[in-house]
């Protein structure tokens, strides 16, 4: 069967992985634009799946910025969200290499304009009575939340897109940050589109 192929050469809308003259898509010589991509992967929910996926990425030289994994409404299936930088050829390779893993059932590359993305950050800062008000103003502006208050510290929970979390952490950098923990990005397509709604699922 012709598998689902988002890089179909006969599809005028498909991304074109290379400049017409370049022969070698891997070489660094190509000038194709490097952008951030979000890739969603449905996998069988079984031990070792995460090391298969992350092992593949490191072995083939894909630098993953973030990775998030969790079960889905189907207990046999987990969903992994990867974000990474790369040009179209890189992303095409990643998608096709992922499909070689038997545990992988479906891979999609999300279109940033037609999807929602979130990550969650917990950030603990040193804030006594003197700093508390100022910090809480920042928290309000970003519609973040205070999830723990102590005499000397505040713990903030922030969800949002990468840009937003970066911006807020940038402002908080003026304070004494004690620790930060963040999840990888998770993402869904908007509207009726679902990851399982492709040619095979």
């Amino acid at each position: 069967m012709e598998p689902y192929d988002p890089f179909d050469p006969l599809d005028p809308a498909a991304p074109k992985p290379e400049a017409p003259h370049s022969r070698n898509t891997i070489s660094t010589g190509t000038q194709a634009p490097v952008t951030r991509h979000t890739v969603s992967v449905l996998v069988q929910n079984q031990p070792g799946v995460l090391s298969r996926v992350s092992g593949l990425c490191s072995r083939r030289g894909f630098n993953i910025d973030s990775l998030a994994v969790g079960p889905t409404q189907n207990e046999d299936v987990s969903r992994i969200t990867l974000t990474l930088q790369g040009d179209a050829a890189h992303i095409e390779q990643l998608v096709q290499q992922l499909y070689k893993l038997i545990v992988v059932q479906k891979v999609i590359v999300l279109d940033p304009r037609r999807s929602v993305e979130r990550q969650l950050v917990l950030c603990k800062i040193r804030a006594g009575a003197a700093e508390r008000d100022a910090v809480m103003r920042i928290v309000d502006i970003f519609r973040a939340r205070i999830v723990d208050v102590a005499r000397t510290t505040l713990t903030i929970e922030l969800t949002g897109e990468d840009d937003k979390t970066q911006a807020m952490l940038g402002l908080l950098a003026d304070y004494d940050i004690l620790e930060i923990v963040r999840t990888g990005t998770v993402a869904l397509q908007r509207g009726e589109s679902t990851i399982a709604g492709g040619i095979w699922n």
Binding site: E18, S22, T25, E92, Q93
Partner: peptide, 9 residues
């Protein structure tokens, strides 16, 4: 399919 466009476009 992963061999397509891997080393040569």
């Amino acid at each position: 399919r992963a061999e397509i466009n891997k080393n040569v476009s």
